[in-house]
């Protein structure tokens, strides 16, 4: 029987209902954050996103594989303070190539059908963030860490 905790329910809801996340990359002393469309794998262990190869984030990820992504449910209204939740996923990233590409590409496109041309473009790369840890914040101040039973 699958056990689903309240925490996992909130985490899964965030990652499956939100389309965009803020991806944080860094090289040397230069942090950089930008929005990316993403899709999450069923087991929540991988977050897939795409980027043109000529971008600063691609350049950063090519040098430093470690990244973090913030996904949140804010609506830019005052009720966010008690309603919204935010999760930061942290882990190494890799460009997806070879046999794994098609499956990950389909996951991404099924979540963002309007981005099929974008991801299929020869100038785009498909990445996944292999989540080591999630840090979930809700109820304004409540923080849980979520890791995987490996």
């Amino acid at each position: 029987m699958k056990i689903t905790s309240e925490t996992e329910r909130i985490l899964r809801k965030l990652l499956t209902e939100q389309s965009l996340g803020a991806l944080a990359t860094s090289v040397q002393e230069s942090p950089y954050v930008n929005l990316v469309a993403f899709a999450v794998s069923e087991d929540l262990r991988r977050i897939v996103f795409s980027t043109p190869r000529a971008t600063r984030k691609f350049e950063n990820l090519s040098t430093n594989h470690r990244a973090a992504m913030l996904v949140d449910s804010r609506s830019n209204s005052i009720s966010d303070f008690h309603h919204a939740a935010a999760v930061t996923a942290i882990g190494p990233t890799d460009e997806i190539t070879g046999a794994a590409y098609t499956k990950s590409r389909d996951l991404y496109v099924s979540r963002h059908p309007h981005l099929a041309d974008f991801v299929d473009s020869p100038s785009s790369a498909l990445f996944h963030l292999q989540v080591s840890i999630y840090i979930l914040v809700r109820d304004f101040q409540r923080v849980d860490t979520i890791t995987f039973d490996r």
């Binding site: 699958k2 056990i3 689903t4 905790s5 925490t7 996992e8 985490l11 087991d43 929540l44 840090i135 109820d139 304004f140 101040q141 409540r142 923080v143 849980d144 860490t145 979520i146 890791t147 995987f148 039973d149």
Partner: peptide, 15 residues
């Protein structure tokens, strides 16, 4: 910690 099938949830900051 609260364990589900594959996830381990550990409180870090409690209210």
């Amino acid at each position: 910690a609260e364990r589900t099938e594959k996830l381990i949830v550990t409180p870090r900051q409690m209210v």
